[in-house]
Simulated scan of single mutants.
Amino acid sequence: MNTLFPIFVKAENLHVLIVGGGYVGLEKLTALLGNSPEARVTLVASEIRGEIREMAQQYPKLQLIQEPYHSLYLSDKDLVIVGTNDKAVNRLVQEDCKARRILVNVADTPDLCDFYLSSVVKKGDLKIAISTNGKSPTFAKRFREVLEEILPDSLQETLENLTAIRNQLKGDFVQKMEKLNEITKVLR
């Protein structure tokens, strides 16, 4: 049973540390900045891929530090994502995060994760996060692709119309909710 509690984080209000500058680090950084381009991110790694360096040119809030990981890099961080090819470093970062009560994700190691990164479907302002409870990121990715294909691009227009209606409704919260539920019944 999947007991994960899904949340959407305002990453632009956080300082995120990514440890790892290889392919996995690139993948995690791309996902983070693709969803939250204004996120403040520090990436620490002994070696940093060229694609990551190119991203740093596009994202002024992305800081690259080409050095081995040290616990000092956890100072002032709110969230940590680890993706190195060194299991000992990954475990060390996780232990350091636990000691400081910082939430951490260690790529491909569910037992060391406080949270999982979901596969995300985006259609305008609509975002749907998909989780397999860490069991199969590949399945989540494929399912995301299916949803992206079947969800119409016109959903953004629908969301804007519903926002306009909600803003014009009178009454208390319950009355507004009842009216919006009545209007959106057609989505069943």
Results as ranks from 00 to 15, higher is better:
residue 168 Q to V: 00
residue 95 E to Q: 09
residue 116 Y to K: 00
residue 151 L to V: 10
residue 40 R to K: 15
residue 134 G to V: 04
residue 62 L to S: 04
residue 124 G to H: 13
residue 60 P to T: 04
residue 172 D to K: 05
residue 35 N to K: 11
residue 123 K to D: 01
residue 21 G to Y: 10
residue 29 L to W: 13
residue 177 M to V: 00
residue 13 N to W: 06
residue 46 S to W: 06
residue 25 G to N: 09
residue 8 F to V: 08
residue 20 G to Q: 07
residue 6 P to L: 02
residue 43 L to H: 12
residue 18 I to V: 11
residue 106 V to F: 02
residue 165 I to T: 06
residue 143 F to Y: 14
residue 22 G to D: 12
residue 16 V to D: 08
residue 68 P to L: 09
residue 179 K to C: 00
residue 126 L to E: 04
residue 43 L to W: 10
residue 30 T to C: 09
residue 118 S to Q: 13
residue 173 F to Y: 11
residue 47 E to I: 09
residue 178 E to K: 08
residue 95 E to S: 05
residue 34 G to P: 07
residue 76 D to G: 03
residue 186 V to L: 04
residue 138 T to E: 11
residue 175 Q to W: 00
residue 107 A to Y: 02
residue 153 D to G: 08
residue 44 V to F: 11
residue 180 L to G: 03
residue 32 L to A: 11
residue 152 P to Y: 00
residue 144 R to N: 05
residue 31 A to H: 12
residue 177 M to E: 06
residue 163 T to H: 04
residue 45 A to W: 10
residue 186 V to C: 05
residue 108 D to W: 07
residue 32 L to D: 14
residue 108 D to M: 08
residue 27 E to N: 15
residue 71 S to K: 09
residue 29 L to G: 12
residue 67 E to C: 07
residue 15 H to T: 12
residue 25 G to S: 09
residue 71 S to I: 00
residue 148 E to L: 10
residue 170 K to H: 08
residue 157 E to T: 13
residue 188 R to K: 12
